[in-house]
Design a protein around this nucleic acid. Structure first.
Lengths: 346, 346
DNA sequence: CTGTTAGCGCTTTCAG
DNA sequence: CTGAAAGCGCTAACAG
């Protein structure tokens, strides 16, 4: 295993100076055709590739954008990641992906690693528990990243205000929940259970807010027992629905915090002999790719995850000095009507 | 935006030499407690972080593993990615993700980028069309990567033989298909349609092979018209099933090349008034997370994607000089029985 | 234990 | 158009 060739080797082989090699490699510089050809041949013969690190030592940043998420398996994050990767490629950037498992310590480590890498942008994606600790942490990141020449992007989570030195890309989370609930309401349902996520998690809280506002719009009171908080994956939905069925309030419809919860709830409902949608209607959130294959096909709220990811990278890589990395964009959501909601009989 | 501090600034502020700073930063070196404290304080006050690039300029590689896949949204790849990321983190590596959209040119670009980055390992994951061009390309990668000190890992695709200088991590793809088909056979089905992927794609071809071998084991002939090749996503499954229903052979069961195809096929079947599993049984492949929520819950083959990803990284980061990056591991698959198969009536 | 001094591989003035 | 030389920020001998 011989040592890999450096620009010096190429220069020697081509009989030119290192500077010349560097010039033909970077392209944008007048070099005589003959010299260029010789260098290119040497490069090919040596199978030479530049050392990105040596190169990055000069410029301020390093042509990579980093995506930091809690985890990467759920369709929600996978689709954000796909959008980020796609746009990063378009912007001639590499895409680094890290997970935190929602652990602030891990997040701290990861953001710092990204600083070490001199990433152009660090994209923090997904809901969070938005307490003081969080805000302070973000302020620290923003500062550290900013005077390292890279930008912080908050994606699929609330903006921290127009004065906060970060780009934000949100989606109409509250609006989507409002629309979902309204859909149930217009179908005549009044006893609507909301099976939400953990208390405090922004994504879930906003969805609860949309649920509340829709009810309010109909002049209906919000009964706290109709809102269940807890883990919002399939298991959480299944377990909580089972408990609710056993000793919970009456209901004719369910607004599930996300499609995973909806899947679990449907399974529990079916086990209990309640037919969906004949006996109980349900709407989900996120529109995971398989929502159309659920039984019944799930009416749910489509979230533009890929677009969130793309936009995050686009803003981060294009943002001009004027805006100084403080822009804020809000993407829309919309209800996808399938077959899990029925007008209330009677 | 002032310039970011370098190790020199820290040294000055702490009143020591750069070497000393470097030593306390790397940790593994005797430094007096007092000096260490002073350096650490300076680091904190300056909010200093090392420059990973400058550091990487010394060592041969750069603590990153790269994952190269066709795309990142489907659960199959998302789960491999999750495994890779997880294990990379354990091995104190960063995880770079790139997509090729199955375009060889793009793949070439990406692998070269990874070489520029001095990645420890480059993991190529997912099925491929295994022609001469492919083999030659891989040989080129392996060579380039090898004498750059990093390793090539072939993941979820066939090994290129024990002499090929790459690590391979496969799963029992043929075996899983064999088991799936046998499951249908033991339920009494004889007219089994195989809705496979594109001809030549290793993943699909192996599944067809398992289908054939199971039939052969039962002494049954393999009728070519019973095997449909084409795009193997939900749409492909839907469209092809519709065509098959209109003017295809008779069948009582279906072996779908993957769960997406199964979902599409089920949708088409239902539209045509054929009940699943009462009229036709079906088994899928991959066991996507939502397979249990399909209508009916889908019997399918579980593939250990996360484990494939983890193993790929583990072998790449742990492989010793003796094995010289040539190991080959095969992971198991198994049938997950749910509710989409019924014994053939009569 | 600590400082000095070479580079690592590349880009970029500054001179030809 | 091309070359020489000065670093970029860090680590790794080599001396104290």
């Amino acid at each position: 295993m011989k040592k890999r060739p450096s620009i010096k080797d190429v220069a020697e082989r081509a009989g030119v100076s290192m500077a010349t090699v560097s010039r033909v490699l970077s392209g944008d510089y007048p070099v005589s055709g003959e010299t260029r050809a010789r260098v290119e041949r040497a490069v090919r013969e040596l199978d030479y590739v530049v050392n990105a690190h040596a190169r990055a030592l000069h410029g301020a940043t390093s042509k990579v954008v980093a995506l930091v998420v809690a985890e990467v398996v759920t369709p929600f994050f996978a689709r954000i990641a796909a959008g980020v990767e796609e746009q990063a490629t378009l912007a001639h950037r590499l895409c680094l992906v890290c997970t935190t498992h929602a652990d602030p310590d891990r997040e701290l480590d990861v953001v710092r690693l990204m600083r070490e890498q001199r990433a152009d942008a660090v994209i923090l994606a997904g809901g969070v528990v938005e307490n003081d600790d969080y805000r302070e942490r973000m302020r620290g990141y923003a500062q550290g990243l900013e005077n390292a020449g890279s930008r912080l992007v908050l994606c699929a989570r609330p903006s921290l205000g127009p004065d906060f030195p970060a780009i934000s890309v949100e989606y109409e989370n509250v609006g989507g929940a409002h629309a979902a609930t309204t859909h149930l309401l217009t179908a005549g349902h009044r006893k609507i259970l909301m099976v939400a996520g953990p208390v405090g998690l922004t994504t879930s809280d906003q969805r609860v807010e949309g649920y509340r506002s829709a009810l309010a719009m109909y002049g209906l009171p919000v009964d706290p027992v109709m809102i269940s908080h807890g883990p919002w994956d399939r298991d959480g939905g299944y377990l909580r629905m089972r408990a609710l069925l056993e000793s919970g309030p009456e209901f004719t419809a369910i607004f599930a915090g996300n499609d995973g919860v909806a899947a679990g709830a449907i399974a529990a409902l079916r086990e209990a002999g309640r037919r969906v949608p004949d006996d109980v209607s349900i709407v989900g959130y996120d529109d995971v790719p398989s929502a159309a294959d659920f039984n019944p096909p799930l009416t749910t709220v489509r979230v533009p995850q890929a677009e969130l990811g793309r936009t995050a990278v686009r803003l981060a890589t294009e943002s001009s000095r004027e805006t100084s990395g403080r822009e804020h964009v809000m993407l829309g959501t919309h209800l996808v009507i399938r077959d899990s909601v029925r007008p209330l009989a009677g």
